[in-house]
Amino acid sequence: MTATEPSVSLAGRAPARPARPRLAGPSRAARTRRKWYEIIGLTAPALIVFTVFVLAPMAFAVYYSLYKWSGYGWPTDFRGLDNYIGTYGAFRDKIFLDGLRNNAIILVGSLLVQGPLALGIALLLNRRFRGRSVFRLLTFVPYVIAPVTVGIMWQLILVRDGTLDTLMSRVGLGGLITGWLANTHVVIWTMLFILTWQYTGFALILFLAGLANIPHELMEAAAIDGASWWQTQRRITIPMLGSTIRIWMFLSMIGSLQVFDVIWVASTPAVRSLGASNSMATYMVDHGFTEREWGYGNAVAVILFFISFIAAVIFQRFVLSRDIEAPAKARRRVKN
């Protein structure tokens, strides 16, 4: 980056810099007005588009969720919170709660598996070698492919006596074969596996980029001081990757709560209806929209939103606050 250049010229001119360069210019009030014009002008297009096409429909969805509505005309059958906690409400439906549990499994599983896996690989491969960019490209490919395609792909591979089963038999692991997509206890873990396959590359790219920002000299200095490779990683590299890891955690969390495509495509309606592989989002479509219960479907959507919101707030509070508090604490310590 060319950030150094202006600093040099600034250093050269610093003494000559007038104390109040805007004496002859517009007044402070005018400047503030001007500033607000710029703010509004630059953010207005994004704001308008976002509000009209994302938030307004969301608000309507909340409205619809209070009705029993089959989607035609305007909703007229007001039911209050029936769709949420009534006798046939979402929270009373075991299958919805199963979906909630499945989302939790995917959320925790993704954080626990993808993160360390990607981190470990990134650390091991954080050195320049021939072909590194090709490798990076290949690991990112799963992320680029449409989730629908991913689901079809894995379905073909995981079908009984399909590719995976055949390969396992050939290497002698035949005894471990089970119904990857049919065994109701196993299928959610299969889904987690597929999602891991798809999104680990994304985490990997993120971490590799973050690692590239860590100055080489730091690690070499540690090596000179006698630190082992692992100590270096633990004490220097990983902490410096902190903000990258936290960004990734947030995106992963939200994605896990909203997962739909892969589960919809890779598991059959029967397996989903048993609560073995469904997520809140597939439940919303299966039970809300397919059966023309639009009010109910929207209620599930609103529940999903609130859960995501709460998760985001908690994450903000307990995890991201470290980014604010730690430097503040450090500053205080230095002062003392």
């Binding site: 629908v148 079809i152 919809w264 059959t268």
Partner: peptide, 22 residues
Amino acid sequence: MRIKRRSGAVLALVATTVLVAS
């Protein structure tokens, strides 16, 4: 493919409902 047909049916439901609603 199986799934796509079904998801197509479901999502076409959305499409149709919406078309009718409007």
